[in-house]
Amino acid sequence: MTTHNDCVVLVESVSHALGAEKIIKGAGINCKLIHVPRHLSSDCGICLRFRADDRERVEALLQGKLHFFDIKLL
């Protein structure tokens, strides 16, 4: 399942994840809500997976629009 070609956006809550999904998909970038991998956080929530190639675009899209903790390589 995990591949180094993917990144995840770590966010505060499911509401934030759904907000981020809307923004990212709205820009035509593929992404998927997944359980937060244990090695990234002990939180029980979800995060958003997308292709690492889109990292800069995703970061720019979310900046100032929706608060996120971090973007990490899977």
Binding site: S15, G19, H35, V36, C44
Partner: peptide
């Protein structure tokens, strides 16, 4: 239950809440 897991139905419940907001 919305926001309590990453499984499909929890996310769908979360989506309903989000869309209401």
């Amino acid at each position: 239950n919305p926001g309590r897991s990453g499984h499909g139905r929890s996310v769908e419940a979360g989506r309903i809440v989000f869309e209401t907001r």
